[in-house]
Design a binder for these strands. Structure first.
Length: 270
DNA sequence: AAATTCTCCTGAAGGC
DNA sequence: TGCCTTCAGGAGAATT
């Protein structure tokens, strides 16, 4: 599923080809996504210039003349750029054309969304309450420590809450906690200030590393061969239940925290 | 206020 | 071989 690094890579892949272009056509084949696509969205967008594109959490924002298009890829959403209008497949729900390119959105599970707002996007109900960007200076040990006082939920659920920090998904939460030597089940309020200092750093580390890896797949956004090949960073724990910790050779354990697989080293993570 | 449960959807996996 | 059932998974909404 697209996590923050994949969304960032998607943005890097498509933004240079869409920025400062005028939208010539929008085709909506399936408006029933997570929220229904606005009935007149195609009409609204056609003729508008995209003057900037940015990411906020796992949302991609298209800043247009009279408002902002807000895209989320959900669980299974992908976009790619086509240079010719090839026949759409079963799950190709939306096309957005500019001069020379067609952005095609594919999403089998339809958990993604396309929203439109004419207000500043940071005032949109979905973006207004989202926590700081994990790669910004706003995410630091002091912030996490303060936010976690009196909160009894497992630290892993805490850092995956988008109202606490934006865009930390399951894979990277597992990996960051491993590198910070913190057990994912530990109650958020019991983590020390020093541990949060370390955790804020390891969150940035794992995300930056994945984004760097993603850079190598940029060309795929323009490939006729298909969808971008997503990437895996060096994973220390995620998907390695029962295998040995690279550090101490102890067998990795797995528990479920709010329905999500959480793998950790019982020796390295306390 | 914080925590938990529900919800959307479909491909994939498991059972028989 | 194939049909039927189960369920993950991001994140907002509803509920406790």
């Amino acid at each position: 599923m697209p996590e923050l690094p994949e969304v960032e890579t998607t943005l890097s892949g498509i933004a240079p080809h869409l920025t400062n272009k005028t939208i010539t056509q929008v085709v909506i084949r399936q408006p029933k996504l997570r929220w229904p696509i606005l009935a007149n969205l195609a009409e609204i967008l056609t003729g508008q210039r995209i003057h900037a594109m940015m990411r906020r959490a796992k949302y991609i924002l298209f800043s247009c003349d009279s408002g902002t298009l807000i895209m989320h890829l959900g669980m299974s959403g992908r976009v790619r750029l086509l240079t010719s209008n090839t026949p759409p497949g079963k799950h190709d729900h939306l096309d957005l054309s500019v001069d020379g390119y067609l952005l095609r959105y594919t999403d089998p599970r339809r958990f993604g969304s396309f929203l439109w707002t004419e207000e500043p996007p940071d005032q949109h109900p979905l973006l207004m309450h989202i926590g700081p960007e994990p790669l910004s200076d706003e995410l630091n040990g002091e912030y996490l420590w303060k936010q976690s006082r009196k909160r009894k939920i497992p630290v892993k659920a805490f850092i995956m809450n988008s109202h606490v920090v934006a865009g930390v998904g399951n894979i990277y939460a597992n990996e960051a906690l491993y590198l910070a030597n913190i057990r994912p089940t530990r109650a958020a309020y019991r983590i020390t200030r020093q541990q949060y200092d370390k955790l804020s750093i390891t969150i940035k580390t794992v995300l930056k590393q994945a984004i760097a890896k993603g850079g190598t797949t940029l060309k795929d956004f323009l490939s006729s061969a298909g969808l971008p090949g997503y990437f895996q960073t060096v994973l220390n724990v995620y998907g390695r239940e029962g295998e040995l910790c690279f550090q101490c050779k102890t067998k990795l354990k797995s528990v479920f925290i709010t329905k999500r697989a959480s793998v950790y080293c019982p020796r390295c993570q306390k």
